[in-house]
Each structure stands twice: as structure tokens, then as C-alpha cells.
Nucleic acid binder design. Structure first.
Lengths: 236, 236
DNA sequence: GGATTCAGAGAGCACTGCTCTCACATCTCA
DNA sequence: TGAGATGTGAGAGCAGTGCTCTCTGAATCC
């Protein structure tokens, strides 16, 4: 393990560059052919090297998948945060829409990588939680932040204040205290529904569940859903 | 091609039995290891036969995948229709919930097969639309039927009757006329949102997006979502 | 300058989908 | 009943996969 204080040796630099290249090539393969077709041998070929050589840099195919998972979460998180912060902090409804639209935009431009993050799990591959939960929760954290700010500003209210059942309230109380949120459980539950619904709509579109020619006005459809979901979440 | 009027010859019967066995074994492999890991050679081994022999019955691995896709759609459709029809035809809200709960129940008991139907597409595999759209649309047809019956009974109403934008209205008008529905476009759009939201919630749960221990009361969470989504769809 | 570390090559194992040929059983029909 | 047609399985083979192992040569360290 290299001492982080000392400057990197040429060898360490070359190594870092090679790993960078492997990730870049892996990303291209992933985007083109999907996760299950990601082949270390193909990456090695593109790198101009024999297959066994890449094992000097990447432990296994699953390890490369993990690197690409983190890479994709990072890119999505960046895109979403940039879109949200382009709007004033008190435009809660606008920020909610911006977040959802940014996720959708990224998903449609990177369907295979979106599938890796939010689609069916790759068989035999288990993402290591300790390395992926951080980057993987940036978007949901962003949403919760918007709802929390709205609530603190008195701009979040449920149409009807029916309390959630106790077992569910306990779950949301845990989230509330862990993320230091002011939003009560009832509204958090509605936020969770809006959250899953946004991803449901995006997944249907990306994964082709809508059918080839059912909807021609897909942008409008998504925006229509967002209008209603903002209301569901309590943003008025 | 065998004449459907004549009784099947012993050879045809044996052939049908073998195909049946292949589908059964394929289903087991699919459920155990997932779609991407479905191996014709492994099925052949379980069948006690050399791999090339299976190609006498199934054109390719993709063909087997198609058979399993249709098989899974059929099973899901049966389960959902049975659950819906167990309730009185005028209990629209109950039927809506029964439909969603049946999908969820099947999805949780058959995660790999659910993933094949509603998860990320298998790379390199394109389902033949002419053979899968029929069985694949049974559930959404069921939902639309419930909403349509409710509307015809005067039990479906939008909280606010804001019209959808024209481009979107055209899409829904096409669906309306093709499926012979009475529901107006505004309500159909809300039904579509409820539809995608139900699958979003189920996919999050099946694909592990909720995290290992975020929610302990998942049944209650889903029921909570359904309560709100029924309202979103206009079922009151 | 010698010892150590490291990158890459190449062979090999077990697996995959799929094709082709060959042998044999069964079925059809004159 | 016997000959030809048809169906079925075995086996070899091709090209691809992940991954391990050993060997060589080069860069680096002291």
C-alpha cells in the first residue's frame, strides 16, 4: 500500500493510468453490450494486452463491475446534483422535478448503465455494500433533502393527514433520525412512494415496457406524472 | 406441421413431452440462477442428454428464453386474474388492490422470472413481439378493465379535472379506442401512473433497491402505497 | 550492481452457444 | 413386408468466456 503522503512513483502513476483505462474501456463495453456481456477478455483486447494481464489490475470480472457501478453512481449523482442546484433553494417543486428529469435524462442516455444500477441484479454478482451504498444513495438523499427543506419552510403538507400504521411508522422514524430529517413519518412515506414511482416510470421507459409505439409523447407523459407525484409527496 | 384434426402420433406425443420437460427444467434453472445464466447445456445435462440433442427441440437459447417468457407471463396472468375475480365485480378499489398484491406476491416468490419480464432486458435478446405481447399485456389489460368498469359505474373521478396536454391526449385516445374504453384520457393518464408506480414499488423491493434493512414492514409499506395510488387513479 | 518487485505472455482448465456429421431407431407407404 | 424417409441422439469441433499458473524480461530499490 502506497503512503498517501509521498508523491506517487512512476510505477504507481502508470498503474493508476492503466486502471483508469480499464474502467474507461469497461464503461464503453457496458454501455454498448450491457452488464451480463461485459467481458474482461474483450477489455484486454481493446487494451492491447493479453487477458491474464488485466488480472494484475482488477481482481475479477465482478471487481470491475463494482468499479463500473461506483463510476455510474458517481456520474448519475453529479448530473442530478447539478440539475437540482441550478434552481433556487426555495423552489422545492422545481427541484423535485429537476431531480427526476435529470435521472430520466441520464437513464435514457445510458440505458445499460442505468440497468446495472436499477435493473435486475446481475446473476452471481453481489455488490459490496460497504463500497456502493455511499455513492448509491446520493440521489435518494437529494430527494429527501428537498422534501425536508420544503417541510422546514412550511411548504410540505399531506392532503389528508392519515397516520401510517405503527410498524411502518417505526421504519420511517429510523430513517428520520438517521438522516436527521424534520419531515414526519406520514410525509416521508409519501415521499418514498413518489421516489419509487419516478423510478417505476423511468424503468418502464428504459426497459421497453411501454411497447414500441404506445406513447409518442413520452416527455409529456413523464412531466404529467411528475405533476401528480409532486402533489402526492405533499409539494404544492 | 401436424394436422390439428388428426390425433397426435406417438412420435409427436413424445416430442411434446420432451419440449415440456425442457421448459420445466429451464424454468427451474431460470428461477435458481437467473436469465443470463440460463444454459442450454445445463438443461441438456439435467435432461440426461447431450447438448446438441436439445437443439432438435429448441432452436436456440433465445428461443428457450422466449418460451420461458411466455410461460412466466401466463403464470403471472393466471395468478392475477384469479386474485381479481375472487372479489365482487363492483369492488373496484378492492380489485385494484388485489391485482397489485397478486403481482407483488408472484414477483417476490419468483424474483428471477419477474426480472425476466420486468427487469433490465437480457443483452442480445429481443423478445419476438408477435408471440409475447398477447400474454404480456394481460395484467395491464386487467387493470384497464377495472378502471373502465369503475368509470362506467360512475365510481372513477379525478380530484382535479385538469386536462392533459394535447400530444399526450392523442396517445391516450389511441389506447382508448383500441381497447374500447370509456375512461377519458385524463383518467387514463392517472391510471398509467398508478400502473408504473405499482411496478416501481415491486421492482425496488425485488431488485433490492430498498437496501437490506431499511424497511422491516414491507407488506405495510406496499399497502400504504396502494391506498394512495388508488386515489391517484381516481378510485374513491 | 545485485536483489526484489512487477507487468505481461502463454498455456491450460472448465465452461458457454452452436454447427456439423454420422449412426441408429422408428415411422410411412407402396 | 420391405424400402425409403424421417426423426433422434452422440460426438467432434469452433469460437468465445472467467480464471489460474508458470515463466520471462524489465523496471525499481538499496
Amino acid at each position: 500500500m502506497a503512503d498517501p503522503l509521498k508523491p506517487p512513483t512512476p510505477r504507481e502513476q502508470a498503474r493508476a493510468r492503466t486502471i483508469e483505462q480499464i474502467i474507461r474501456l469497461g464503461r464503453e463495453h457496458l454501455a454498448l453490450h450491457g452488464a451480463a456481456a461485459l467481458s474482461l477478455r474483450a477489455v484486454a483486447r481493446d487494451l492491447g494486452v493479453v487477458s491474464s494481464a488485466v488480472y494484475r489490475y482488477v481482481e475479477s470480472r465482478d471487481e470491475l463491475l463494482t468499479l463500473l457501478l461506483i463510476d455510474a453512481y458517481g456520474e448519475l449523482g453529479d448530473a442530478v446534483e447539478a440539475a437540482v442546484e441550478a434552481l433556487p433553494a426555495d423552489d422545492f417543486r422545481g427541484r423535485f422535478a429537476a431531480l427526476a428529469l435529470a435521472v430520466r435524462k441520464w437513464a435514457l442516455s445510458e440505458p445499460a448503465r442505468y440497468a446495472l444500477l436499477f435493473g435486475s441484479p446481475v446473476p452471481g454478482y453481489q455488490a459490496p455494500a460497504e463500497r456502493t451504498t455511499g455513492p448509491g444513495t446520493r440521489v435518494v438523499t437529494g430527494l429527501m433533502g428537498i422534501l425536508d427543506s420544503a417541510y422546514r419552510a412550511g411548504k410540505l403538507a399531506a392532503p389528508d393527514a392519515a397516520a401510517v400504521v405503527p410498524a411502518l411508522a417505526a421504519d420511517f422514524e429510523a430513517i428520520r433520525s438517521e438522516m436527521d430529517l424534520a419531515v414526519p413519518a406520514t410525509l416521508l412515506a409519501r415521499g418514498a412512494l413518489a421516489w419509487t414511482s419516478v423510478f417505476g416510470a423511468i424503468s418502464f421507459e428504459v426497459f421497453g415496457q411501454y411497447g414500441a409505439d404506445t406513447f409518442s409523447a413520452r416527455d409529456e407523459l413523464f412531466r404529467h406524472h411528475l405533476q401528480i407525484l409532486a402533489g402526492v409527496a405533499g409539494l404544492e
